[in-house]
Design a protein around this nucleic acid. Structure first.
Lengths: 173, 173
DNA sequence: ACGGTGTGGCTAACAGTGTTAGCCAGGTTC
DNA sequence: GAACCTGGCTAACACTGTTAGCCACACCGT
């Protein structure tokens, strides 16, 4: 992650992330991004081949932070699925636009740092005692809860804490 | 649903659905849609105020079909969460582009036929014996499994049937 | 000191997007 | 027959990602 990008490229990714989190994916355009950096849109292509390449770096950012978040939660409360799930939920809801961008498309695996995807999955896998099927079910549940909440699909008065508890308790047993 | 739309508007929605399922959301543009109908893009605005209004009808379409699918599954095997989940999964995976379009944005509730959202939720709620928290957990799990599979987030060799079984068994108990 | 080269900006332009304004032919209705 | 609605059309606008080509500056080797 250190020398994946030139310093200037990293500045661009940072600006892209700020823009995304402030205004959503629809407002993240090459021109607004360039504006924020005080340059013109075509200049961005001196640092990235296309817009997708910038987005890939944002995906890598979310994946990295998710890994760090889960590792920290696991260190704090080893073996606790609830702690893991809570950390995942909190981080996702704190960065909904970034979470959507990283999640609502096929993973650009070829362009991602090697091992990053696995690293993000490891804490959950460990907490599930290497039961792959269980880990996938928990992952699907957590992602489903988060993304449905982000999109406001649950009724406004729904008790989502209760739904999380219910699901985790069932999957935990 | 009958007189929600003029006959011509319904033709347009049908063409939009075909286009979407064949080529994905990126290729569903006002111009390609008009092309398929043998007219020019601006003429579409005689029938819909904007592109979003067409998309709302596609969302309504998926919601209606989901309701029908779940109702049929429930009639075939009353009380079976597995049957319900299987029907949901099959329908979603048979129409991935439509499922994504209907799912990866806030629900346009105000523009949807009254009661449609509730109708689609009822079979699951009944099968969960009106346990709202459980129903929401199951919904999140099912949506998570489907959308992660659509986006190819699981490893290619993952045994998703097993993950579905594992999750449903846990939530069923 | 000087010429070459690479870095990172720029302007102008293109194709494609949703969308609006304004025109016009044809059928319906008083 | 006159008015009017329906549903097409062309031309155009603002915005998108992206390319081509130009140019200023810093660095580097002789």
């Amino acid at each position: 992650m250190a020398d994946r990008l030139t310093p200037r490229a990293r500045e661009i990714v940072t600006a892209a992330r700020d823009l995304l989190e402030e205004s959503g994916a629809a407002h993240l355009t090459m021109r607004t991004l360039a504006d924020r950096l005080g340059i013109k849109a075509p200049s961005l292509y001196k640092h990235f081949p296309d817009k997708q390449a910038v987005e890939v770096e944002l995906v890598a950012l979310l994946l990295t932070e998710t890994a760090e978040t889960l590792e920290a939660a696991e260190a704090r409360a080893p073996g606790s699925l609830e702690a893991l799930a809570g950390a995942y939920r909190d981080h996702a809801l704190a960065h909904p636009h970034l979470y959507r961008l990283a999640t609502e498309r096929p993973l650009p695996r070829a362009a991602l740092p090697a091992g990053l995807e696995d690293r993000a999955a490891l804490p959950l896998l460990r907490t599930c005692a290497d039961d792959m099927d269980l880990a996938r079910a928990v992952w699907a549940f957590a992602h489903g809860m988060v993304i449905l909440e982000i999109h406001g699909r649950f009724p406004a008065d729904a008790d989502l804490d209760a739904a999380w508890k219910r699901g985790l308790a069932a999957l935990h047993a």
